[in-house]
Design a protein around this nucleic acid. Structure first.
Lengths: 144, 144
DNA sequence: TGAATATAATTGATATATCAATTATATATA
DNA sequence: TATATATAATTGATATATCAATTATATTCA
């Protein structure tokens, strides 16, 4: 007998991430009109590690390279990033956050902190650790 | 200080669901060429509850109505479903699984069971309960 | 050196997600 | 009954996901 997808833990996991994305996007959109959650994460990552290549960013964010290419195109169009050739390795690009991008980064910092704090209200550090361990067990099972 | 997205639990949750989807899709594709994981779930749901409307299926699967409309179009095109007008309420459709669809359902049942079992190997029922409770706490925080 | 191989990024095709607007039909209520 | 409101589904626009194929450049090694 196959149980209804709704009864599985994978459904709950998916629901959690969807709710989180919706919530986070809503709060970001209140203060920055034209940026998506994923684009915001690209900005935050690049801000903390400016030398990353697109491939590395993709790995960090668990995104496909193709997706990242397109996200970055949009971010350049919207003026959040500039993209220049990296002369040390001409296959790569040197991504830089523009002024508009830095403004967004500063606005995003508190939003992200509040989003996470609100999401995890009433959940202890120990519980988060447990959650993380269980999820990593699953990830481990899946990636072999 | 903003921590890197990689260090947050939300990243881990997202990673888990992506790995699961990739794994499940791979195993489905081995045996059924032209069906996606999401389409497979629609089939399974409809098989267990044949009277559902598109809206109800969308809610079950935590999908957007617009997405579901498009998924169903594709499934009809591929011959997994038929769609007829529901004479009791002409806004609705009566979805029916075709022979090809039923064949897929039968193939999918064991695949889905094995996928879930493999994913959760080494994790006890109690732990799954804990996982589920923690995720529901988060969902609860997010949906107000 | 030159050919083979590896790597970074892009492109194309198709599927899904999300939001807002719209269409068609049902239901409620003045 | 006529009008307002609610509901089911669709459509359009834009973003992202995934896979396979391709391009451009680097690296390796015979």
């Amino acid at each position: 007998m196959i149980s209804n997808p709704v009864q599985t833990i994978f459904y709950t996991i998916e629901q959690t991430i969807k709710e989180y994305r919706k919530y986070a996007q809503k709060n970001i959109s209140k203060q920055i009109e034209d940026i998506t959650l994923d684009q915001a994460l690209v900005l935050m990552i690049l801000n903390s590690e400016p030398e990353l290549t697109q491939k590395e960013i993709a790995n960090f964010l668990y995104k496909d390279y193709a997706s990242l290419t397109r996200m970055i195109e949009l971010m350049v169009e919207k003026g959040y990033l500039t993209r220049a050739i990296n002369h040390k390795d001409r296959r790569r690009f040197k991504l830089e956050i523009t002024k508009k991008g830095m403004l967004a980064v500063e606005k995003l910092k508190p939003i992200i902190l509040v989003n996470r704090a609100n999401s995890l209200k009433g959940i202890s550090q120990d519980e988060i650790k447990i959650l993380s361990n269980l999820l990593n067990k699953i990830i481990n099972n899946l990636s072999k």
